[in-house]
């Protein structure tokens, strides 16, 4: 297999009734990669994941797993396993029976599959929970059982469909760290679907940002954040200001903007424009300052409350200010895709 890609998606398209949910998707996911498909609901990310799992068939195009064309192959014959959003644990089986299910249906002997199921439970830190029923577990524990049930089969690719969506914030952050650690340890490819950009940034090697059935950009978390290719990416990943200058769309990250008083001189080499403060939101570590520029654009600037910026700490709605940025921090967006 060598450096063959784990998942190779070529020209995949899909329509349901009259709505096209995926247009000509091309995507190559490397072996051992933690790859995330990120997008709002209706962007087609879950449909694409379900096609890799075998629950949907594309109208056009091919899907290859490690070079093997699986486009028409039914789900139970594909070397992939899925962690479902609602976990889909079998309610009538205890935890260990759930985990060993995949081994059982493929004919692994009872002792061997028990041992491997218990190893998988240990990996997700659920030793001793084998005899409980799913209904007796917390949301976080069910999530771990679902993960153990998938990885025990040693799939070549693990598919995760918003697996942390039902968990509260703190648990979600813990699970993010843990998922990433497990992925490193077992070294299999993770294809992860989420609408939570922070989650995507925290775990992924690369992210594909999807919108309305097309991939807007593929890149590392750093690339998609700092060099957004389209206005959609710029606004979906973090907050961003999109402005028109010289007939081109440009993206400005709020933390790269500097708020100056009306009379202050802009730092050398930066570009400053006058405007009026419309709102100030103090958030503890940072303060968000909303400015309406005289040119007509609305900007949001995030100022760190480390004492270095005087203007942001004293700014009040209605105050006249200047907003400054270095030309290098304004990125041209690929207007063709907007």
């Amino acid at each position: 297999m060598g450096d063959q890609s784990a998942i190779d998606i070529r020209g995949v398209a899909k329509s349901f009734a009259t709505t096209t949910v995926l247009h000509d998707i091309n995507l190559e996911i490397r072996d051992g990669e933690f790859f995330t498909m990120l997008g709002p609901s209706g962007s087609g990310k879950t449909t694409l994941l379900r096609m890799v799992a075998g629950f949907e068939t594309p109208d056009a195009g091919t899907i290859k797993l490690h070079g093997d064309d699986v486009t028409q192959r039914p789900a139970h014959l594909r070397p992939v396993n899925t962690v479902f959003q609602d976990y889909a644990l079998f309610p009538h089986m205890d935890v260990v029976t759930n985990v060993e299910y995949g081994l059982r249906v493929s004919g692994v002997k009872r002792d061997a599959r028990r041992r491997r199921a218990n190893e998988a439970l240990a990996m997700v830190r659920l030793e001793g929970f084998g005899e409980r029923r799913p209904a007796q577990l917390s949301g976080g524990q069910r999530q771990r059982v679902a993960l153990a049930r998938a990885i025990v089969n040693e799939p070549s690719v693990l598919l995760l469909d918003e697996p942390l969506g039902a968990l509260d914030l703190k648990l979600r952050q813990e699970m993010q760290t843990e998922l990433k650690a497990i992925q490193r340890r077992i070294g299999i490819t993770f294809l992860y679907v989420t609408h939570d950009q922070e989650e995507a940034m925290a775990m992924s090697d690369r992210i594909a940002i999807m919108n309305k059935g097309v991939i807007e950009q593929i890149g590392s978390p750093k690339e998609v954040y700092e060099l957004p290719a389209t206005a959609f990416v710029a606004s979906f990943i973090g907050t961003s200001n999109v402005i028109e200058r010289d007939g081109r769309s440009q993206s400005l990250r709020p933390e790269r903007l500097i708020i100056l008083t009306a009379s202050e001189a802009a730092p050398v080499g930066s570009h400053a424009e006058p405007g009026a403060v419309t709102d100030v939101v103090y958030l503890g570590m940072v303060t968000r300052v909303f400015v309406h520029l005289d040119s007509g654009d609305d900007l949001v600037a995030v100022q760190t409350n480390d004492g270095s910026s005087i203007a942001s700490t004293v700014a009040n709605p209605g105050d006249r200010v200047q907003v400054a940025w270095r030309p290098a921090d304004a990125f041209d967006l690929d207007t063709a895709l907007v």
């Binding site: 799992a53 075998g54 629950f55 039914p74 789900a75 139970h76 014959l77 992939v80 396993n81 899925t82 479902f84 609602d86 889909a88 644990l89 079998f90 299910y101 995949g102 059982r104 249906v105 493929s106 049930r149 998938a150 089969n153």
Partner: peptide
């Protein structure tokens, strides 16, 4: 009954007959 239970079973490698019997 959630439809994903049947999908989960197929996903874990069960044939239609096995899914019927076990799920």
């Amino acid at each position: 009954t959630s439809n994903t239970l049947l999908e989960a079973s197929a996903d874990l490698g069960a044939t239609a007959v096995q899914t019927f019997r076990f799920v």
